[in-house]
Design a protein around this nucleic acid. Sequence first.
DNA 1: CTGAAAGCGCTTACAG
DNA 2: CTGAAAGCGCTTACAG
Lengths: 350, 350
Amino acid sequence: MDRATPIRRKITLVDIAAGCGVSRATVSLVLRNSPLVNKRTRARVEEELRKQGYVYNRAAANLRRQTSSSIALVLNDLANPFFAEFAAGVDEALAAAGFVTLLGCTSESPQREQAVLESLIEHGPAGIILSPAEGSSAAQVLAAVGARTPVLLFNRELGGDLPEYAHWDSLALDNRHGAQLATEHLIAQGHRRIAFFGGHKDSSSCRQRHAGYVDALQAAKLSMAPSWRVECAPTRVDAAAATASLFAAEPAPTAVVCYNDAVAMGLMLGLNRRGLRPGHDVALTGFDDIAEAALCMPALTTLTAMPRARGRQAADMLLQRLREPGAETRRTIASVQLVTRASSCPPPSI
Amino acid sequence: MDRATPIRRKITLVDIAAGCGVSRATVSLVLRNSPLVNKRTRARVEEELRKQGYVYNRAAANLRRQTSSSIALVLNDLANPFFAEFAAGVDEALAAAGFVTLLGCTSESPQREQAVLESLIEHGPAGIILSPAEGSSAAQVLAAVGARTPVLLFNRELGGDLPEYAHWDSLALDNRHGAQLATEHLIAQGHRRIAFFGGHKDSSSCRQRHAGYVDALQAAKLSMAPSWRVECAPTRVDAAAATASLFAAEPAPTAVVCYNDAVAMGLMLGLNRRGLRPGHDVALTGFDDIAEAALCMPALTTLTAMPRARGRQAADMLLQRLREPGAETRRTIASVQLVTRASSCPPPSI
DNA sequence: CTGAAAGCGCTTACAG
DNA sequence: CTGAAAGCGCTTACAG
């Protein structure tokens, strides 16, 4: 290319300094808004910066200052609306604090997680927000990121124990209390035969939600039938397919506490196929309050985790940790709230 | 803290070199897998790297080599499932190519977009994938990112013209042809009174989809009534509220081409409220094929844009541009495909 | 208030 | 095959 284009070589401090006859140091002071610089000198330098279209090289500054202006965010899957909202909240809070978000996705694979963490850590993030892949272990994550970079664990626990020196904060949902609220609500509607549907027993959040369900039933002295506990993957498709198991034995439940909203929507589909009207013949509740929950037919009673707010909260916790590296480990449990909608009707009066 | 913790000062090349009695240069050659290094020296160095828990400082390497290993991804809103999927595809392809994704969200605001771009560009990304905020202009974006960093525009056009020297590639959906396919499908089902519902005329994608709808009607020599073009924000809530306008004048449409899936689902809600059964009394189609499209009742006939594949494609286009900075500008239009489901029934035989 | 000099952690010709 | 030296773009004591 021989014709002039504005794609010149990169403008640096040296160019600006030369352009207005001061030293690099002075330009640097202007950039960092130091009060030491003479007002008129500052004005001259600022004019030159604009004129030459200078772009600050933050990586160079970070190298010299031994600082970092990025935070890594490692999630399983952005296609899950819950995590997409969470990521939006994280990015929002980080941007407000002057940090940039480095994204990494693991697709629920501990091996990918390992690789993603190893790659991200080389970019020197000030901290890491990690929602662990299922089956990922503390030892593995620690090997990938070392003990120098603060980690905030979101939503899940890591397998195995962390060594004492690595005090990683965590933010989780109050799964147990949430499921208890949903179950109590169904009981208050008059239901006595209540099932727990979906999820896998080896998932910690599923165990916690099931425990909350049991809490509520026991407090109300209600009993459970074995056929009222059906496991399935937390997806609509699997839940729809597993619906039959709920009605395999007598007596059938009149209400169902679902592991999450996706499962609840799959169950609605499964009920429709059996000629049962959800929110009419069978009451049900979800968990997460994804966007569809308010819009499906019938609208789904569920628990709001407010993922965007959780994202902001996670970012704030990590930023706080950066400010006080020595502070005690925090394990925050975010409360969830019941949203009552049409799907949790009173029992059919048969 | 007086007790020893593994949070020592950072290990650098100097530590490794000292640890095994070679120079920094040799360690660097080992790290970069140079064939110049003696096999036994390499083994010794690698052992030392492992022993000391060395972490490569890619920022320092990038500074020295004048390279970059990051790409910025700037979107309106990660809470939109279409963009969340797109982002997942971008990250997947970038990670495979050894790049890390810098995330930025603009919330549809040109001012935020400006600020986000200015912040991201300081981190020196090798390129930028930008889905412009509505109303953002070429001049504005160019001012923020300069002409040195390649930009790939996704999904929308920028207002105003780009100067010649900035040849930015673009990837967009074939909105016009997609809407034409949907309309032709409804015509083939026997519909003759077909409305176009939702979106705003100042959105380029809406104009394109409307044009495709008109193409199909004109080719079939069908006429349009003014009340069959209703504008509303591309959200469920607004679409539900705007439903009445479609039936304000006689004759009412028997089928509706919706701007997108969200609008189509809002219309379903609005129809239900009026006692009209969607996919029975009124046929309708969407656009995007979001996850709910297959699962709502009735399932929605729509156009798949395959956002994850589009994300991979966008990333690949940008990576290609990095390889050939001088290549001609590419304006790729990704085709979309019709997915036929229950919502696009034949007309009521009244 | 401004400038000369050293250094952040790496890479890369260039000698040897 | 290995090492000494310069330099990427910035910042920061330290003189003056």
